[in-house]
Design a protein around this nucleic acid. Structure first.
Lengths: 213, 213
DNA sequence: GCTATATTAGAATAATATTCTAATATGAAG
DNA sequence: CTTCATATTAGAATATTATTCTAATATAGC
């Protein structure tokens, strides 16, 4: 009779150690600059172990990326599920983003400063799925507020750019240590800006077209 | 008597070939995925030649980055030097950015999708200088329009985020082939958004603080 | 044409990623 | 609590790729 496949008890903690070590290395000295030897030393795992759990440097990098982006996106999705008015919602999104960055500088450095190079050939579909999920939540949220006449209609692929684009740009500067403005203050200004650029009824020439369409 | 040092005639064209080949490789398959052998083959240069002109993979990558960012920033600086009113100026910035991306997809992929990993230890100061230069032009431009009461005061490190942040985000999606909206339409909407988020006198709670201070 | 220097070629070397083989640990079944 | 299938680990062997080195060749100025 076939035995059941079973994961060993310590396997998850070992994987965590490896991911942690990889994240440290990647975010501090960069992907191509860190050697498997670095990761091996920092994680305490053996070469064989690393290659057993992940499949190589690229797959490991992809796993690290996935874990981080998942946690980040989860925060945004929570906001989309809350029942706030448009302006408060936009502010929450901005706030979530910047607070997450502030509290997860290492992840942020890896996720936002350095874009996935191409080492996710395998993982591409997973990432795409995660993005689709996020976008669905976003779409519903924006549609609702458009219907209520609070948020103006523009092309669907522009909403996230308008909401989080300035935050992303600020984030990059922040991670490079090139900002003076504190995160709290930045939240105020950027939330305000998002609102002004998306609020319905502001002066402007031509209205855009629908989101859900 | 000492001979003058002299560059050979074909040296520049050879360097160009190498940079071109590197750009193609880096933007198509990524920095760490391309081997020096790839670049050697595509450029037609020999290993020795590549290492003579640049100093290794990282320095080559830095050179490629510098060339691209210089051309990109030059376009923005031109706009800052033109004498347009605030709204038109913001629109020109957005337009310059997106048109440049559209016409330089390969460079854009390298510059914007993949952030400089860390391979510019040497070049860091040069990049910083280029950024300072751009920022000075930006600073003057914004200050002028703030004085004229057309653009509102916010923290100095937020102006570029508000102006080009949404463009940058749109750019990333565009480069991933995840946009439907055409560049022309995007320019309209994003220019409008930049204006609305930066125009003086819009409804908002508290004013920010000065740029030039 | 001569000479110092820049440039090139490609082999030799060094660094690093990956694979492989064998050992050890673990958990489920009996 | 023993056994066995499988998961996990270790680390040496190998393969790949970046870099260095040596010697040849081309070029510019005299």
């Amino acid at each position: 009779m076939k035995r059941r496949k079973g994961r060993h008890a310590k396997t998850e903690s070992r994987k965590r150690d490896i991911v942690q070590a990889a994240l440290r290395c990647f975010s501090e000295i960069g992907f191509s600059e860190t050697s498997m030897e670095d990761i091996r030393r920092q994680s305490g795992a053996s070469t064989g172990s690393i290659y057993h759990h992940f499949n190589g440097k690229e797959r490991l990098a992809a796993a690290v990326y996935l874990e981080g982006i998942h946690d980040y996106q989860a925060g945004l999705i929570e906001v989309f599920q809350e029942d706030q008015d448009a302006r408060e919602g936009l502010r929450s999104l901005v706030e979530r983003h910047l607070r997450w960055v502030e509290e997860n500088v290492q992840w942020s450095r890896y996720l936002f400063q350095k874009r996935h190079s191409g080492f996710m050939a395998e993982t591409e579909e997973l990432i795409a799925a995660m993005n689709r999920d996020l976008m669905e939540h976003a779409s519903r949220w924006f549609s609702r507020h458009i219907k209520e006449g609070k948020i103006r209609r523009v092309q669907g692929d522009l909403y996230m750019s308008l909401t989080l684009g300035p935050c992303m740009e600020f984030t990059r500067q922040f991670l490079l240590g090139q900002t003076v403005t504190g995160v709290g203050k930045a939240i105020d200004v950027l939330a305000d800006a998002a609102w002004m650029s998306l609020a319905a009824g502001a002066r402007r020439e031509k209205p855009g077209r629908t989101f859900g369409r």
